[in-house]
Write a protein that binds this DNA or RNA. Sequence first.
DNA 1: TCCTATGTTGTATG
DNA 2: ACATACAACATAGG
Length: 273
Amino acid sequence: MPELAEVEFYRKQWDAGLGQVVERIAMHPLARVFRGCDADFLQEALPGARLMSSEAHGKKLLFRLKRGRKKADLLWLGLHMGMTGKLLAAPPDYRPAKHDHLALFQKKQALVFSDFRQFGQVQVSRGEEIPAWWRDLPPAILSKDFSAAHVAQWLERRRRAPVKGVLLMQEAFPGIGNWMADEILWRAGIHPARPAGELSAAESRAIWREIREVTRGALRTVGEDFRDPPKGWLFHERWRREGKDPRTGVPLERTTVAGRTSCWSPARQRLRS
DNA sequence: TCCTATGTTGTATG
DNA sequence: ACATACAACATAGG
């Protein structure tokens, strides 16, 4: 599932282990989720490290661990949930199941990363320096730097691409995934296949506003306790076979746009005006 | 059996 | 340089 709100929910699942030492770990070092990192190093560095803090940025997660007293003894654990990744806290005697690729065992619980499709990824770095994979991140959606001008700039820069595809670009819109993009465009009344550069200033601004609204709403629901977003959202209809526009009752349409299944309301989102 | 799936990346092609 | 289409990754569920 993981888009930004699901990722935030999963981040908090490991809060149970903050401040505590990892006594031992279990992992499948040959699993595909370790393709981006040195699995042997991970295996030797994690036991004995203390989980200090966690952070989410878009769909990426960072866990900071500390091995000794020196500053340089920091361990940076990066996780991406891919399509089916999840994090959970389990009892300390938990037996990792087939798709649990990494488990950090602490005195009071086990912190588990599970991902059956393995589109997710693990990264690890050591030392004082912020690792390259956590540097130069784009402005977070709810930060001050995520301005209407930032959105307008990206729509213009990718002017020939369908707007749906632009919203999925993580280097500009960190954390937006397929369902959020559809939700944003539906609320803004913009057809997903419209070329980004053809949108008016008002439409660009509406996208900016709805990106932030959908993000806030998703964090308050999905991000808190995984409950569904509020009634009236496209979310509740977009996966249903006979889905209807929550505002007009008109049957929703779906096609592939920018390589992803997209859902929109023909009543409110038109290709040409 | 076939199709779909809340993601990303690489390659071929226009 | 930009954009698109498509495959690949690995697995489950309808």
